[in-house]
Amino acid sequence: MARNGNAADLAKRVLAGDAAAASRALSLIIDEAAGADALIRSFFASSGRSQKIGICGPPGAGKSTLTGRLISQFRKAGLKVGVLAVDPSSPISGGAFLGDRLRIQEHATDSGVFIRSIATRGMVGGVSHSIFGAIHVLEAFGCAKIIVETVGTGQDEVVIAKVADTVVYVTTPQMGDEIQAMKAGVMEVGDVFVVNKADLSGKDKAIGDLRSALNLGRAAGQEAKPWETPVTATTATTGEGVAELAAILDSHWAYLAGAGEGRRRLMEQHREELSLYLSRRIYQDALQKIGIRELEALVEHRTDPASLGARLLAK
């Protein structure tokens, strides 16, 4: 089994499109196991060519169902699709219920679709160094579109903008008025806004509220942006509006490629990946320096946490 295979061999199999190898590589990277860094090294050359689509929005907005529909659109175009579906870990037991797959059943036996559920395991905003690694696996595996479905905490999910090329914010009618839409946070990083469950009443008002909130920036003196953030409506359960959404995603991808904005975003993503790597390494190294002698010194008030901390970091 691949469980014992070496990293170079595993990487080769992923690049050749072996799903079992991709799955194992994902585990090694997400678990931050030995060999994870070596895998990322072999995958990095093939990175940056696939469109990474971040789907965020409050819980219950229909992100998973919409993801399932988008996969169908991409598959119609003959594209291989990867999905990373992030769900929360319990802070109490450390366990997790990963239920996004349940909503993406129609692709359950399609070999051109690779879906992996990821538990947050305590990472802030659902992003850690390993999510970048996971994306590199799917890029190397040959996915042209990679959908990252976030936890669904809503306003605080701005980190997705540091992972994805195209950020889709999904909401529903009656999710709140214009004032909600004016709040800082994910509203500022969305590239496309979707009012899902458009069959419910209040769709038009929700679209109007979002549009006017997005236009306030202009009224407040911001320059016209080269990408005018679209607001579109879908009913994921029936598939209505999904073809239009897929077309918008394509045009955003084309915009990124054309305007040089794509390169700028890629740079931001790499900066984030690099900083997460550095902070993880520095953090771990520093924590290893805490021993019983240091703790004794604190108990006896021979030093204080700030001075000791500074000394340990300098060591």
Binding site: S89, S90, I92, S93, G94, G95, A96, F97, L98, G99, R101, L102, Q105, A108, S117, A119
Partner: peptide
């Protein structure tokens, strides 16, 4: 889940 497993339900 409550016992600390990551559970995928399909």
């Amino acid at each position: 889940r409550d016992a600390g497993f990551e559970v995928i339900y399909t």
